[in-house]
Amino acid sequence: MTERTVVLITGTSRGIGRFLVEHFLQRGALVEGCARNLVEWELPGYTHHQVDVSNEGQVRAMLSAIQRRHGRLDIAINNAGIAAMNHALLTPAETASRILDVNVLGSFLVCREAAKLMRRRNYGRIVNFSTIAVPLRLEGEALYAAAKSAIEMLTRVLAREFAPFGITVNAIGPTPIETDLIRGVPQEKLQHIIDSLAIRRFGTFADVANVIDFFVNPASDYITGQVIYLGGGG
């Protein structure tokens, strides 16, 4: 078994996930990541898995590979997610279903399989991703916000179910950050969100990493089932 901290991050092909890979590598961790596609970059200490997080068999296989390779998993970050901006009246069932699958089912499966590895050492830190769209009840994001609400509740209940195994489960709710996820959102809409925050600016990757660092700190063993929103928008 490796002496180094092992971190699993989902959705590492770009955006926050990609940033977090480097963030944890710089801290000396071994990082395992996944995305639906292969990635074109390589980093020492990083192993990529081509996985659809809503596919039970693929998630299971990825976690088995981590167990075989490292013999441990300390941290799991459920960053993978998809959004779709649309009026509810114009949202196809297929889109609705996909949003729920990737965000809710995907986070659930990764939490479940990660916890199975973590419980062996009676230690684990799981961080899920909500969004500021939940407390702000953003129009045009009904399904996305509903899926993220589900993730918040999953976080709170799993916090209780996993506590006996030494595993904490928390969530971060980022504000808009300039990534691909919000590329399709009109500028006016983004400004409206920023204006609803206590601190009126876009979020940064560093803001996200700061909250995650707090959640995954070994000293945070009495912090679980919590959701922290960036920017004071909650």
Partner: peptide
């Protein structure tokens, strides 16, 4: 719950059987 998860892991590690 602990026993069931433990069994899953035994079967996988010792026999290569992957079950949920």
């Amino acid at each position: 719950v602990t026993m069931i998860v433990d069994l899953e892991q035994r079967l996988e590690e010792e026999y290569g059987i992957t079950l949920t």
